[in-house]
Design a protein around this nucleic acid. Structure first.
Length: 197
DNA sequence: TTCGCGATGGCCT
DNA sequence: GGCCATCGCGAAA
């Protein structure tokens, strides 16, 4: 139940993306805590990474990525979807980790429940989880290491073996030249909430 | 089972 | 004006 400090994020996006697997997003809503285990992430690694929004330089949209680590980078795409990222690395190193899928803890605690199949459909994709968690542009630039804004990240409660972390190419970045082949997407092996095989 | 495509709007050139 | 770090539906197989 320990919140991850800002220093956790002040490392390469590659490391942070893998270390976030098994950690929890906590949402405070109507006075109650909702916990979601992070099961799938992608890392976007600075100006050289052609799939990273920062590769085209700093704009009003992506400026938070150029600042210090530990802040939410939320953007709107396809005319209807919000994406949730957390800024990583030193200030001046515009990198971030995209949260792609989460698993509700209510599901973990009750795996045999019949409602689980329905629950699975709600958070197994980057746009679906932002909808479920009511994440929008209002979270842009807010810290992920403080509780007062009602959305934060907590550390793992159990060990995650390195061998259970799968590494594949990122989704939807065919335009990124050689960087489309980088295996910078990570997910927990065999987890049912991962967005696609 | 996989596939093709439309919805929909902010941002960049 | 074109491009998207997506999703869900309906058709084809």
């Amino acid at each position: 139940m320990k919140i991850l400090p800002q220093t956790f994020y002040n490392r390469s996006a590659l490391k942070v993306a893998q270390d976030l697997l098994g950690c929890f997003i906590v949402k405070k809503r109507n006075g109650k805590m909702e916990k979601y285990k992070i099961v799938e992430t992608e890392s976007y690694n600075g100006v050289k990474d052609l799939a990273c929004h920062a590769s085209k330089g700093m704009t009003k949209r992506n400026e938070v990525m150029f600042g210090p680590a530990g802040f939410f980078y939320v953007y709107f795409t396809y005319g209807m979807h919000y994406m949730l990222n957390i800024v990583t690395g030193e200030a001046g190193d515009p990198s971030a980790v995209l949260i792609r899928s989460v698993e509700p803890v209510s599901y973990i605690a009750n795996r045999t429940s019949l409602i689980s199949d329905q629950a699975k459909l709600e958070t197994n994709g980057p746009a679906k989880l932002t909808k479920k968690l009511d994440v929008n542009k209002g979270f842009y630039g807010l810290p992920a290491y403080e509780k007062k804004y009602g959305l934060w990240i907590e550390e793992r409660e159990e060990e995650l073996k390195i061998s259970h972390i799968k590494k594949t190419t990122r989704v939807g970045v065919d335009y990124a030249g050689d960087y489309k082949y980088k295996k910078w997407r990570f997910y927990i092996q065999d987890n049912k909430f991962v967005s696609k095989k």
